[in-house]
Amino acid sequence: MNIVVCVKQVPDTAAERKLKPSDSTLDRASVDGLINELDEYAIEEGLRIAEAQRETGTEAEVTILSMGPEKAAESIRKALSMGADQAVHLLDDGLAGSDALSTSYALAQVLKETGFDLVICGSESTDARMGVLAAMLAERLGVPQVSLASKVDIDGTAIRIRRVSDDGYHEVEASLPAVISVVEKINEPRYPSFKGIMAAKKKPFRTLSLADAGIDPASVGLAGAGTEVVDFAERPPRQAGVIVKDDGDGGVKVAEFLVAQKFI
């Protein structure tokens, strides 16, 4: 089984993130890049599915696919050290400024070349927070979309998931090949072991340019994006509030505040 996990490198959520005044794109250079937290769950699920396949005697391979600047290679290495078998890094200056529409086009082009039985995405990236890529990939690749999964079962070519909904969950089924996305309730991602880190250095790692992947340069990057930023501004911080220490009357004080604000 050919499993491809889409991994994005994002700026550390805990760091202060800013848009660049020059072109209104995210300033990725000035903050530490990490694997998008939700993609760690995607990697873990890919590894578990591959392990389960191998147990039943089916060959399985996990490929990490990431589009991003040079720095993204660090995150790809980390994914390999968790246990993935090989990686493809789509790297080209022409990709800078791509939006979801153009990112999905570029990744779909690569996926057509690598082939796949299962594509696994995180439910959203912590920087863009769009949560649309899995759906876009399914549409572009013409395969079922089995997304927002909190549980995945694969039996032969049948895939069944629990899809989280606003008020509970849906049971969903489809057949492979398919694109899935996972939510963070699905598993507990493993940490790379020392052995894994050492092994990662020797794993196959392909770097592709736009030309290598047969991607039309006019359809990606800032020029190929379907959207543009008009302007942006940092929101003024909230006004500092009143913080009191509980001296045995904390509950009374909260009540007084709530009464003053007409909530009681």
Partner: peptide, 14 residues
């Protein structure tokens, strides 16, 4: 997700 697929189908910005 519906919006995402519509954007691809109609090549529109989302």
């Amino acid at each position: 997700e519906i919006a995402a697929r519509l954007a691809v189908k109609t090549d529109s910005g989302l």
